[in-house]
Amino acid sequence: MSTPTTSATSALPDATPAKHVSRFRLASWAPVIVLVLLCIIIASINPNFLSFGNFVRISQAAMIPLVLGLGATFIILMGSIDLSVEGVLTLAAVILSMLVLNGANGNDYGLLAVLAVLVIGAAVGFVNGVIHVKLKVPSFMTTLGIWFIGVGAANALLGGMAIRINDPMIRGLAIERFLGFARGVWLALACLGVALVVQNYTRLGRHIYALGGGEELAALSGISVARVRIMAFMLAGVFYAIGGILAAAQLGLGNAQIGNGRLFTTVTAVVVGGTALSGGQGSVLQTLVGVLIVVVLANGMVLMGVPPSVQIGVQGLMIIAAVALSIDRKLMRIVK
């Protein structure tokens, strides 16, 4: 399903390239093997897993984590982290619900509202990037602050209400089907395509890998580190905003709790897919595999009758296991 990208390998600083390449290949295929094994085990316990209806369910559960994970992948590839996922998503979902045809006010801006929400996602990402780069505040602190600012702003806009969405186009993302799958799933796949193009065929994508591989080297090679970082955060913000649109479509309303728990799933999916937190290694295709692992496991646990509240704990353990297995400890003596 996923092939290791050559750009990732070339960005790795290592004295023994041959050895490293083989290690890297294994590391990037391990998630695929885990996914296949997981499918085989669940299918052998409950054959219903392989029904078309269940595939549709899995695809619907995976579409939002995938879109969020795509954005977060670019940030993690730089060696940074973005904790503002829930903030941007909630703000986007709430603003969308206020601008499209809804049950609370007379607005009906349709596509224009979608565009506005995407711009807001980019704007929040821009703020993240500027604070992070210009004030030199570590990304996890910047985005922790922005996370709560985003959720707080959404709360302030709503004043404790929830706004029902009546716009047929937005609702259609979750309800209307194309070739058996919800339209939102196709939108998420389109996002994956865009992310692949950005990652493999644009200067921004290459520069993100270069930053993650070694920032000093990248800066000395003439890459404008500040600009790349700010643009990456803007790109991620747009993806989170799309995640917000999908979440609002799925729930049929905008409320301030819509983002709860999504950061956790996003980070789990990205690191379980094999993208290293130290930056430079990974790809959006690996995030797709990571998302499928998380969603298939959750789906399998539901089929086996495990309560959903256990899933958060399992995801937590998966994060620790995945990060512990993927970190290249030779490269980092100090871990903070």
């Binding site: 937590g316 620790i320 990060v323 871990v335």
Partner: peptide, 25 residues
Amino acid sequence: HVRLKIPSFIATLAMGGVLYSSALV
């Protein structure tokens, strides 16, 4: 964090999930 060399913010984010899940259960 120390033995597995996982950055503290990610180790404690994960631990927070485990604890939250335990509390829910």
